[in-house]
């Protein structure tokens, strides 16, 4: 297992170099630059040159890239051109919001989705199954911004239970988490149902029943544990995607998360932020993927033992 983790971390380095190089090229190839955005419509070449010199943008591209890489070793992504703050600090601030959001969304989806999926599987073809699968289809078809506005209208405007947007207290997290959580839960419920139905037909489930252990234990310990892998894969992927920035939800609910940070930076050609967030997202993907793999091993001894022999 240690060997496996080590080789994964080496892979990470390769991924990081590739990802930063690609973003660097794309940011520079795309039309527009920071100086033009700053000076807006004034076309004073001297001013633009001065800004470029200040930001170090007058140097050759490869020098810029190597400077960036050198700083990366010290976790220094430079300073934002427009926000005048270290990029590292901006990412940490954004991560606090987005990270909290991601954890609550995944927990919501896990609890609600699993419960609904198991219930549907156990009542296959009956009323509850049909109701839950209907809701699940609706949840997957509904655009997140629409659901967000709907929830804002009901709980924020009409009932005045929760803040419409912004983050003055923890309550600000409730609506965005529920919005994305419900959409995630819809998919989790569907996956859980399929996976559980498959597991319920397995021989070892009959063995478990023949042992006379409680139905709860049969379903949760023998059934769910075996059904969990596809569900974890999906949740891991959703977790990565949200940590990389849930732009729509962050925008609708006025949260200053990673998603908004990145989109604003792209609009302004704020290269240090774009580079910084890209590195952050790449790291998140690698780490979460590693986490998912370790989780598989935790659940399934066949995976764990196979990796020991690698």
């Amino acid at each position: 297992m240690k060997k496996y983790i080590r080789s994964r971390l080496i892979q990470t380095l390769v991924v990081l170099i590739g990802v930063t190089l690609l973003t660097f090229i794309m940011v520079n190839v795309a039309p527009g630059d920071a100086a033009t955005v700053m000076t807006e419509k004034i076309t004073d070449q001297a001013a633009i040159d001065r800004i470029n010199a200040q930001l170090g943008l007058d140097k050759p591209y490869f020098v810029q890239y190597f400077l960036f890489l050198r700083n990366l070793v010290f976790f220094d992504f430079g300073t934002s051109y427009f926000k005048y703050k270290p990029v590292m600090q901006l990412i940490i601030e954004g991560f606090r919001v987005t990270g909290t959001l991601a954890v609550t969304i995944i927990l919501f989806a896990l609890v609600v989705g699993l419960a609904m999926g198991i219930m549907a599987a156990l009542n296959r073809g009956k009323f509850w199954d049909q109701l839950i699968m209907g809701l699940s289809t609706l949840g997957m078809a509904l655009p997140s911004f629409l659901l967000a506005i709907l929830l804002q209208y009901i709980f924020g405007l009409k009932m005045q239970l929760l803040p419409l947007s912004g983050l003055t207290s923890w309550q600000g997290y409730v609506l965005p988490s529920v919005t994305m959580g419900m959409i995630c839960a819809a998919e989790v419920a569907r996956l859980t149902r399929t996976s559980m139905l498959d597991v319920l037909g397995q021989d070892y489930m009959r063995t478990a029943t023949a042992k006379g252990i409680s139905r709860q234990r049969i379903i949760l310990v023998h059934g769910l544990k075996n059904a969990l892998i596809p569900i974890l894969t999906f949740l891991g992927n959703s977790f990565k995607a949200i940590l990389g920035g849930a732009v729509l939800v962050e925008t609708v609910f006025g949260l200053n998360g990673i998603g908004r940070l990145l989109v604003d930076a792209i609009m302004q050609r704020d290269t240090p932020i774009i580079q910084g967030v890209t590195v952050y997202i790449a790291m998140i993907f690698v780490l979460v993927n590693l986490g998912i793999d370790l989780f598989y091993g935790l659940i399934d001894p066949r995976i764990r033992l196979a990796k020991d022999n690698d």
């Binding site: 021989d203 070892y204 009959r206 042992k211 544990k225 659940i299 399934d300 001894p301 066949r302």
Partner: peptide
């Protein structure tokens, strides 16, 4: 089940929980 009456099945390869 499992207490007074116990059962052994045909397929030992799949009758045990792999996890």
């Amino acid at each position: 089940r499992g207490h007074k009456i116990a059962m052994i099945f045909q397929e030992p390869m799949t009758a045990l929980n792999p996890l």
